[in-house]
């Protein structure tokens, strides 16, 4: 069953058409890979899906609802969570706080509880902290012990994990990963692929869209791939077929010229 259905999505900035009538769909529990050169519209797709950019045309149906016109926070509450290409953690806050913010939409206590029914609030916070520890431990067993440290003190790979945990904390139906391996060396990238495997195993019902430049990552985590260039979808299908598609090869490697 299709969880996300995007039809004819167009996003433009002034005269620049960043996304041009794009159709994309994701099934429940599926991982979709998105590839394409820089500036081809991959991140624009994520920003349109999460409500940061308004669509000029087209429709986005998510879990049977039309998302057009909804604000970013309302879309997040419907079950779309994301990470960002360059980390958007709050470095001055603790790792736990960075994850708890993902759970605040589902909170059961209000302002008055915070002040007058402290026990109730602290019980809920205790549960939330426990779940945050559990999420961190999925990726690195030593990480929960550092949960109360400022996230800025953690190494890069663990920060990326905290960001993934923050996205998972909201119990999303759809997870958008924007170049999770950006800025990582080969060993870290290998660890990251293992992490994504863990996410798949722990949350089999979760749908994932992952943007990647690293073809090994895409090949390792997603069966179906779409390729973008100049804001248009140029290919779609299994990884091997898309990678071999002439337009994709041209976008990445340039046009083959006749040998002299």
């Amino acid at each position: 069953m299709s969880l996300l259905e995007v039809k004819g999505l167009t996003v433009s900035f002034g005269g620049l058409v960043a996304l041009d009538a794009v159709d994309v769909g994701v099934d429940a529990g599926e991982t979709l890979g998105v590839i394409g050169p820089n500036g081809s519209g991959k991140t624009t797709l994520f920003n349109a899906l999460t409500g940061l950019y308004a669509a000029a045309a087209g429709e986005i149906r998510f879990a049977g609802r039309e998302l057009a016109g909804l604000e970013a926070h309302a879309i997040a509450r419907l079950g779309i969570a994301r990470t960002f290409q360059s980390s958007r953690l709050c470095l001055a806050l603790s790792a736990f706080d960075n994850i708890l913010i993902g759970m605040q939409a589902g909170r059961r206590t209000g302002l008055l509880d915070s002040v007058f029914r402290r026990g109730k609030l602290l019980a809920e916070m205790g549960e939330a902290l426990e779940r945050a520890s559990h999420l961190l431990a999925l990726f690195n067993r030593d990480l929960p012990a550092r949960g109360f440290e400022r996230v800025g003190q953690l190494p890069q790979i663990d920060r990326r994990r905290v960001e993934i945990c923050r996205a998972l904390a909201s119990r999303p139906k759809l997870l958008l990963l924007d170049e999770p391996s950006a800025g990582m060396n080969p060993e870290e990238t290998a660890e990251l692929m293992r992490d994504l495997q863990i996410v798949r195993e722990e949350m089999p019902g979760l749908s994932v869209i992952v943007i990647e430049h690293d073809m090994f990552v895409i090949e390792g985590v997603s069966r179906r791939v779409v390729a973008f260039n100049y804001g248009r979808k140029i290919a779609e299908g299994p990884f091997a077929a898309v990678a071999a598609h002439p337009e994709v090869r041209e976008a990445y490697l340039g046009r083959e010229t006749a040998r002299a």
């Binding site: 604000e71 994301r82 960002f84 958007r88 953690l89 709050c90």
Partner: peptide
């Protein structure tokens, strides 16, 4: 600290 991250967290 980060309005965009906050919005995307609901």
């Amino acid at each position: 600290d980060d309005e965009i991250a906050a919005r995307c967290c609901g």
